[in-house]
Amino acid sequence: MHFVVCIKQVPDTNDVKIDPNTNTLMRDGVAAIINPFDMYAIEEAIRLKEKHGGKITALTMGPPQAEAALREAISMGVDEAILVSDRAFAGSDTYATSYTLAMALRKIGDATLVICGKQASDGDTAQVGPGMATHLDMAQVTYVRKVDELDENHIVAERLLESGYEVVESELPCMLTVVKEINEPRLPSLKGKMKARKAEITTWNAADIDADPEMLGLDGSPTKVVKIFTPERHADGEMLEGEPNEIVEQLVSKLKDVVLGVS
């Protein structure tokens, strides 16, 4: 069985601060990490391999620096890693990104199960996984909180919905996106770290994956960012002061109308 985990390197939002003067993101010294949701995807692939055997490949699209994310994945237990990187990918939206990753998966060829995090923490779209599955005409189970069964041809997984969860059976190959509830990602072992340092990372460019140049980057992206701005915040919040019962009295008078409207 060949498990392919798709990951993304993102800025660590723990580090992201807003410059109070310019109201822009201060990204100096912001660490690049593996998208937190992708950590669950990596962990799940490792657990499935431990149980069912096979091979795990980590796949990412990004700048040359994204190699660090792949090495971290290897240190956790991933076998092979592929970086898809090309200047032609600049400005890719979710459509172009899912196409690019799909072309890389096509080149990989024999993926039985593709596992992604439910979304990336920088864009929060949750569109790339399903988009990729569509480009490949692959079945999908999104928001998976547990894998119940896996055999040669089928997978049974629990999908988290707003109103509960649904147990879904899918044919393989299949694409899963996973939620935090599914597992607790392991820390890399010392042996894993040494392996990661020495590991050879395969790098593919646009030509290597046989991509249509018109489908890539800015040209291949139907959506265009036309403006970026910093949202307004409640800067003029009001502090309520006094004894607890006085505070509560003030608060009740502020909230009363809304509460009465709702109840």
Partner: peptide, 15 residues
């Protein structure tokens, strides 16, 4: 919103 709501982006689909 993007980056956890730290910035807002305006997006268009022109073509």
């Amino acid at each position: 919103p993007a980056f956890g709501g730290n910035i807002m982006a305006q997006i268009e689909t022109p073509y």
